[in-house]
Amino acid sequence: MTDPQTGAPADAAPRLDPLIEEAAKKAAIAWLTPGGAVWCLWIDGALFVVSGPDEQAAPGLSGAATATVTLRGDHGGRIVDWTADVSAVTPGTEEWDAVAPQLAAKRLNLSAAEDTVARWASTCVVHKLAPTGALVALTDGSGAAEAPATPAARRTKSPFRLHRVKRPR
């Protein structure tokens, strides 16, 4: 049976939005709700995050079934917000063996990737954030914070000039 709108099989995984994929491939940091700002790596259609002792904290991520992921550009502007299904990657599985060494290779300030993967297997959690296909709509259009109130109401003085400039006649 096929989906009449997309022509894809009805039981197929949701189609990945190209904006999510492109932004995630370039992202080194993602903002998660719950979880906060974390370093991450995009591998085979999902975002992977490591948290635990001697690694980054991602509060609330371990108990969450879903998370909202925000990806930003080089200059801090929000590119896309999307919903992800959260699951833990189990050490010793085929997925772990494929993902953990890639994460360790991208981890900054490491001396030995093999030791890191073994440490992660015993003390940390590798989370997989798989896109559900749903983009999160912006609530206020821009995502910008409101400007704080200020008592400034007068025009500022003109800048100081050291020399008087003569006007041509």
Rank of each mutant, 00 (worst) to 15 (best):
A8F: 14
T33E: 12
I43P: 08
A105S: 06
D3M: 04
A118F: 01
G45I: 11
H163D: 14
P18C: 02
I79F: 09
T6M: 00
P18W: 03
V99F: 10
P151Y: 01
A145F: 09
L135I: 15
D3T: 03
E95T: 14
S158H: 09
D97T: 10
A64P: 01
W31Y: 13
D81L: 10
D11M: 09
L61R: 11
A23C: 02
G76W: 00
S62P: 07
A153H: 05
I43G: 07
R161N: 03
G141Y: 04
I43C: 06
R155A: 15
W42Q: 00
A37P: 08
K25T: 10
D97L: 02
K106E: 12
A28L: 13
A153S: 13
C124T: 03
T123C: 10
T83M: 05
K25P: 02
G45Q: 03
V49H: 07
T150Y: 04
D81G: 03
F160D: 09
D44H: 01
V86D: 11
A67D: 04
S158C: 07
A8P: 00
A65S: 15
H75N: 13
A57W: 05
R161Q: 01
A13Y: 03
A147C: 02
L108P: 10
L103G: 01
G133S: 00
A67I: 05
T68H: 13
T83V: 14
A37L: 13
T68D: 11
P14C: 01
D97F: 00
L71W: 01
S122W: 00
K25H: 10
G77H: 02
R169Q: 10
